[in-house]
Nucleic acid binder design. Structure first.
Lengths: 230, 230
DNA sequence: CGCGATTTGTGCACGTCTTCACAAGCGCCT
DNA sequence: AGGCGCTTGTGAAGACGTGCACAAATCGCG
């Protein structure tokens, strides 16, 4: 399930705050999901809690990390050291959650040689050598859209079977290769859509945008991920 | 629907390459989805194609942009100008797709005053003033997780009703406020999960292949856990 | 030792999303 | 004008995910 990483993060938080066990209700709250859903996920995962008590935080972390394949620290190759690539290379959230950026690659000779966070940018043509040094299974594409497909092909050619694509384009890869896409502008556009919907539903704003109306719904601690009716 | 931005991107690509019309099959291909799904999405959207011909690219772009609320250029406030925030501030994909970063904010006085991409970083306490200058409806949180909730509260307080959260934590917001979350590490963990699954499905790569043994029916992932006490 | 409080695991029903398959409509060619 | 091929729009069926509600299980306490 795609929610396991979220559970894992919440569990790490709980572990740091000294919790030994956690109920499904509590964990579901911390992860922002329904408790029944969480229990179903965890049961399907094969991991066992104790009725009347809850889940052992440490044990559950181990279980989830095993299922996610985080017991081994995976090496990641990051291609494209532009604006976004730079940030990703310096993002400490990767290292702290089981990933090691093993190589930075770029096609621009002007960027080759630059050092970021202790890693030197190498030319994309060195990808085969890089892949031979470290066993790279995951590639991150942070190039412009025009270069993304070519980079993906090169990654696949050296044995990469999972790709995280930040370029705004669809990649075609052989079956057996997983691609996940993150498009930052798309996320904003989805929010814009909701904005537009909200604005259309209410009466026309007579003048300006005075945000005085305090929404009589109240301040419930609800996570909003509402569906989209027509 | 959350797929409209993807269609829109594909349509822009098609428009640039000179296409006047496009069939659902072709557009579905370019967007990486099923053609029936695409047709259903577009029909629900109310937009009309022409049977026997396809969809008018230009018209469809207009329609989708209207539905997404991109006819007006929305102002975005970006909070947290660290590693990731820096990249987001410099990301041209926002401007090119209908968004305008109206303000950069940070709590660290050491960062206030810095100029990025023609914008000066201001202190988070100036948020009310910033919101008054531009009508800000969307906020982007690129702060550490510890500060995210507080920032979210501040954003909501000044009338922001849509938040894009890059911090690895769940935000609780009043109903009526939409939150989308992007966690880069989570994406990698999902890929890692697939990697692990792929590695478990095949036989252990002992040497030289001989991966004929396909583990008849047995999903080796689950440990047998019976016979505990009693 | 037994009872009550608590919490997990899960059967079931429901709504949503996806996909197939096909009728209806449109343009082009003869 | 008429037929033919192509494409959209949509009904229906199936897969999937979600949430409720409750039985089973466990712990603590008297």
């Amino acid at each position: 399930m795609a929610r396991l990483p979220e559970y894992l993060r919440a569990l790490h938080n709980l572990a740091e705050t000294g919790h030994e066990t956690i109920s499904s209700e509590g964990l579901a709250n911390a992860a922002g999901v329904n408790s029944a859903k969480l229990r179903k996920d965890l049961s399907q995962l094969g991991s066992y809690g104790t009725r009347g008590v809850g889940y052992d935080v440490g044990l559950l972390i181990e279980q989830i990390e095993y299922v996610l394949g985080l017991t081994q620290r995976r090496a990641v190759a990051l291609v494209g050291v532009g604006n976004l690539g730079h940030a990703l290379a310096g993002y400490d959230g990767f290292a702290s959650r089981g990933f090691r950026i093993a190589a930075l690659l770029d096609a621009d000779p002007g960027r080759v040689g630059e050092e970021i966070n202790g890693l030197v940018v190498r030319h994309i043509d060195e990808l085969p050598r890089v892949a031979a040094e470290d066993s790279i299974a995951i590639g991150v594409i942070a190039t412009p859209a025009t270069a993304a497909q070519q980079v993906a092909d090169q990654l696949v050619a050296v044995g990469v079977t999972s790709i995280l694509n930040f370029a705004p384009c669809v990649l075609s890869v052989p079956s057996g290769v997983d691609v996940r896409k993150v498009d930052l502008a798309v996320e904003l556009q989805i929010l814009s859509f909701h904005e537009h919907r909200k604005a259309s539903q209410t009466a026309f704003p007579t003048a300006g945008g005075s945000a005085l109306t305090a929404l009589p719904g109240g301040l419930a601690v609800t996570e909003s991920q509402e569906a989209i009716g027509t």
